[in-house]
Design a protein around this nucleic acid. Structure first.
Lengths: 182, 182
DNA sequence: ACTTACATGTAAGGGGTTACATGATTCG
DNA sequence: CGAATCATGTAACCCCTTACATGTAAGT
């Protein structure tokens, strides 16, 4: 049940509306936790009821009004408690791996385009992450002496990059294997 | 919704009881898809109703009776159709990454033991995968000329190994970062 | 007697996905 | 005038986790 904690972290980094949170979950947070806007609005109401966040109505010009959410001391305490609470490593779930083993009972070459599609999707994500790393951490406009928060954001991004590189190498291994046995 | 397809693949590789399937999900299938026995029994009943599998009661000596499940032609056809149906790459979910970014708003050094625990868990899993690879694919008792099914099982296992190695390297990066900023 | 392995389930609750729904404003 | 962006929600359904529940048989 990490969604509410991911929202706490995001709102501590920067208060914002449900819509803004949904966009962050499509971008930076998305490489280690995903959520749709429907989920976010529902959890945001629950967190408000629990007193973890407070809401302030903000009038905007040239845009619909929005509700800006920020973390209360109680929310900060809930995050602290969760950080100290051991969790077990998440298990991976790869439908593509199920398909690869299933290919033994079908035509393996029919999977090649599917695997190529996945390869392309991971290559795109890697490009996106590397651009973000250059912009925020390793490029000329990056902070010369990053603070703790920036160091931590960077190491999480490096994890996303390592994951995509591993997947690309593995999917190439898969393609070579499929072509060998086809 | 790949659980039923993962079960189809497993039953095509070898028919078996719900209990046996649960054990396979704890071992070989577990490194790309997880399921508990409760989930498996429920889905098994649904698949039987859909005519994807058929059940045969087997009397055993020195053990309780069991129900052996095997895939019907309709089940095979369902698997084939799914293999041809494009799926989108699964997104990863790492609670540990949420915690790492959250550490910016707490004491980062409090996370070190948690990260070390995860490192150990991944090291254990890697050891287990490597032992399986040696036993089934690269050791002296492995088949000299593996068939298509064995090649595919091996490439999926190589994916699990690559994943664990990547996680170990990244968690070491995380530990170094936490110690640097603590 | 206790623990482990084998074997099969039910029930409650929570989390997540997909579809549906509405409305303002800007830009082409 | 239509499409895109900003903004917030409801409802149905399915999937998954956790807890509860039962029973046989072998080994220590």
């Amino acid at each position: 049940m990490a969604l509410e904690h991911a929202i706490l972290v995001s709102l501590l980094e920067q208060p914002g509306s449900g819509y803004e949170l949904a966009r962050r979950f499509d971008r930076s947070i998305g490489y280690f936790w995903t959520a749709t806007h429907q989920q976010i609005y529902r959890v945001l109401r629950r967190m408000e009821n629990d007193g973890w966040i407070e809401v302030r109505a903000v009038q905007q010009q040239a845009r619909p009004d929005k509700k800006e959410h920020s973390v209360t001391p109680a929310g900060r305490a809930a995050l602290s408690a969760w950080l100290r609470d051991p969790v077990q490593p998440d298990s991976v779930r790869h439908e593509i791996a199920v398909k690869i083993r299933g290919a033994a009972f079908d035509d393996p070459s029919a999977l090649i385009t599917e695997v190529e599609r996945h390869h392309q999707a991971h290559a795109d994500r890697l490009t996106h992450y590397l651009a973000g790393e250059l912009r925020d951490f390793t490029g000329p406009e990056a902070p010369a002496a990053p603070d703790a928060g920036e160091e931590l954001q960077h190491v999480v991004l490096r994890g996303g990059i390592a994951y995509e590189r591993m997947m690309l190498a593995w999917l190439e291994d898969v393609l070579a294997t499929l072509r060998r046995i086809a």
